[in-house]
Design a binder for these strands. Sequence first.
DNA 1: GTGAAAGCGCTAACAC
DNA 2: GTGTTAGCGCTTTCAC
Lengths: 338, 338
Amino acid sequence: MTIKDVARRAGVSTGTVSNTLSGKQPVSEATRQRVLEAIEELGYHPNEVARSLVTQRSHTLGVVAMGFDYFGPSQTVTGIEREARRQGYLVTLSVVSPDDTDADEVLQALVDRRMDGIIWAVPEIGDNHAWIENGIPLELPVVFTNMERRSDVAATVVDNFAGGKTATEHLLSQGRRRIGHITGPLVWWEARERRRGWQAALRAAGLADQTTWWEEGDWSARSGREAMERLLARCPQVDAVFVQNDQMALGAITALRGRGLRVPEDVALVGFDDIPEAAYFEPPLTTIRQDLYELGRATVQTLLELIETPDARQCYISLKPQLIVRESCGGVISRAPS
Amino acid sequence: MTIKDVARRAGVSTGTVSNTLSGKQPVSEATRQRVLEAIEELGYHPNEVARSLVTQRSHTLGVVAMGFDYFGPSQTVTGIEREARRQGYLVTLSVVSPDDTDADEVLQALVDRRMDGIIWAVPEIGDNHAWIENGIPLELPVVFTNMERRSDVAATVVDNFAGGKTATEHLLSQGRRRIGHITGPLVWWEARERRRGWQAALRAAGLADQTTWWEEGDWSARSGREAMERLLARCPQVDAVFVQNDQMALGAITALRGRGLRVPEDVALVGFDDIPEAAYFEPPLTTIRQDLYELGRATVQTLLELIETPDARQCYISLKPQLIVRESCGGVISRAPS
DNA sequence: GTGAAAGCGCTAACAC
DNA sequence: GTGTTAGCGCTTTCAC
């Protein structure tokens, strides 16, 4: 089933079929109808591979993501896919692992398939973004997510600093004054940002001497429990803890309960992410929600603009996360979302 | 940067370049070296789109998934992507929504891009698989996941019936005799299978009259809480509940605690999925783990076989889920028999 | 308006 | 072994 078959059937040339399909050149109504009929009868669908070859456009976006069997990344990718499809694009997904050295390979495979653009949705860990430094080695438009601001690179991010600050300020507003902190792995840029936010809020409240009251976890509930144990051993006086994600907060709850401490009466807790389960923790968890779905949407829109207008102003879109108040901080109590 | 540039630079024809690259025709060592050098110097990478057009192979798999911002589906897709890449394939992902009428469109877009095969990783809900009935309308190899067995269709599934049966049998082995059940939406095939497993175990234990002790949820923690409330109202004597996923089990725990009932002393609980948080529930949740990562791997392998050997149509791979024993089933039963 | 023809970048016969 | 050439299925000049 090729365009030739359609042309033959309609008694026209392939160029005319192409024109009726694209509308780029005028076609008389009569032949238009005959072509459309032929297409219908033959059940013809254009071969997009052939089309890509000549137009140099694949209408496909390459997405490289990391560890997306977790809630955050998969939500981002979902947002990306939705928006891409809405705009007539397909998404080719590559998953890299934290220890991957094959970033180049992955990228090359996408370039070879002539993606129209790339979304690099890999968290910035250690120096895994170093390859960007000397200008992007790709002639393709690329947009990054959750990356430290750089010149000449487009990125969409969640304002993790603001998130950490908001969380801590909420704790302060509830009257807590001895606020500890459990971080994600500090090789992650996002983890460092959230900690900066916590420290900034502490300093602003005249609590600068407490900015060392933190312990490092690895995002897992297990590490949250262990970090909480360490924090309790080192700073038994804490009356609140800002935890950098909800899973670790869950572990922290377990640790506190194990020590006979009540949440929020003895120790208040704020998490980060607002995973669906957070509202059903015991107690329901106050947390910072980041709209990663929206992050995905915004990233696609940025990329499509870059594709249309390759003269590319560098743009850096920053999304503010939102405080969700539940019961783990005491004070204001809101119901679980309905 | 095309094959022509390489050919010119190496002083050979394009055919020779192609042959050195593919190795399908012998090339003298001397020219081979010259070609390789030219490729290196020019930084040449073959255009895979052009290659696809002539070879009729895209080395890309189309995956259509649903609601994969949840743990299960994203784990499956991760498994798919990993195995695909290991075998030299890229993955193009389409996400459909539960209320999709656009399944045809999605499929067509993948066919138009000449995917080498399709993985339909959409749960079977209502009659959303009806389009398969009159034989697959695609000339492409397709593999389905978690779908009821059909003739002439390849599928890889988790044995949900066995999972439900195992969960219930474990409860029975702990001495529980009044075992209720909270299901997912029964328009889901998987939910019906798990319930069948529960009922089968009940019947085998001579408890056939209890096979109506179930309530329906929608997979969310919230619905689990509500279903638990209803179940308690209708069958206050239950001493155990098998819940069809961990999120709903979390809600069930909340409901039980609200009624002053202890887990596992008063009511034992088994979940399904083994999400990472399950080990940190209060109490840690006994659950049925399904290895969806492996499901993804197996699905890709099946698909690749189908691509190589298109006459190998129907195969049905069934993966057994695994019981993970934690504390939510306890040993001691403290509720008085009624 | 419409048809003929020249590619897009590559592979695969087929000569030599 | 290597070069030549005819496509893969489409779009896009460019005549008419």
